[in-house]
Amino acid sequence: MKSLIASHLKSEMNPIALLRSNVRPKEALQPKAGKYCCVMSLMAQVIAHGATAVFDRETYGCPGAVAGLGMGTAYTTAMGGADTFEAFFSKGQESARDPEKYQAIIDQAPAHLRRKLTIGERFHCSPEKARSWFSNELPIYDFEEQYRIVKPLSEVEEHEQPDSVVFVVNPLQLSGLITLTGSIYPGLLNIMAPQGASCQMIGAYVFQQAEQDVPRPVLGFTDLAARKHTRKTIPEDYLTYAVPWNLFLELEREAQDGIFVSPIWLDLQ
């Protein structure tokens, strides 16, 4: 699939698409079943090198990706459940409801997770706020298809309809996309930049926006944990700008004679 927006942006990073399917693509990157990893490390290979990645309910990498990719939620079942995650996402050991139980979770965790579990990721100021986020605010979907596929937008076929189209952009390219979106939307709140994991910013939050009367793009890759896993592949000044399929088509139409053919944009090139 050719994208007029992508041709105007001229990004060094591939725009990508997230799709659901019951057919596994051949020669795709996929985590090993039961092995912990950040799915963004595989998605970074799609973004930077044009690979294809696939995930399912046995190969989802980490609990955050279960929600991020629309396969339900693991925050109530994995690694001790909600009590663990509310402490993990806030202040770690010092914020645990049951310090002894939480310490047992730390002791059983893989070595690379123990320090983060002990100190906490500190993405939320309190365990109560953390629990409210993953229980009430993060949109949860459980689509029936077996696989979630991430591949370059250029490889999307005519019969396919992605759930999410993701542009990976530097500040100038992001400015162009925000201007393009603002040119067709009323009001000032043209985009959203939610708290969460980077995979959720191109998945779950985009699924939610697809259901809105006025869907908004989701600004992402602001997840510091994902940054740590992708910094050797994706430059630190890049962010994601993810849109539902129908909004992508609307933006593509405006890109024909909108901001990208203006003297201001052309001069900046």
Rank of each mutant, 00 (worst) to 15 (best):
F207D: 05
L174P: 04
E160T: 14
A204Q: 06
Q195C: 12
V166I: 15
K232N: 10
E236F: 06
Y185N: 10
Y141C: 09
L251G: 12
L249C: 14
L249R: 12
S175K: 11
A242Y: 03
Q173I: 15
E250F: 01
C199M: 06
L188F: 13
I191N: 09
V214W: 14
H159T: 15
E236Q: 10
R231M: 07
I234K: 01
E144G: 05
L153F: 13
V156K: 05
S198D: 11
K232W: 07
A226R: 01
K151T: 08
S183V: 00
G196H: 07
R231W: 02
I184H: 05
K232D: 10
V166P: 00
I234P: 00
L138K: 05
T222L: 00
E145H: 08
P235T: 03
N170M: 12
T179C: 12
R216P: 05
Y241S: 08
F207S: 02
T240M: 02
A225L: 05
D213E: 08
R216S: 13
A210T: 03
T230F: 01
G182W: 06
V166T: 15
V165Q: 00
L189M: 12
V165R: 03
H229K: 00
P152A: 09
Y185P: 00
T240R: 01
A226Q: 01
L177W: 05
V214M: 15
V150C: 12
P235I: 01
Q146N: 06
A225I: 11
E211T: 10
V243R: 13
L172W: 11
Q173G: 10
P186G: 08
P217S: 10
I178S: 04
T179L: 13
E158M: 08
I178L: 11
G182L: 11
H229F: 04
P139S: 03
L239T: 03
P194G: 13
V150N: 04
Q146L: 09
I191W: 01
R216L: 15
L153N: 07
H159I: 14
T181A: 11
M192G: 00
E157Q: 11
I191H: 07
I234S: 04
S198I: 02
Q195S: 13
R216A: 14
N246W: 09
R227I: 08
Y185E: 14
V214C: 04
T240Q: 02
V169K: 03
N190P: 00
Q195M: 15
L174E: 14
L251K: 08
E160H: 06
C199H: 10
E236H: 02
R227H: 08
L172V: 15
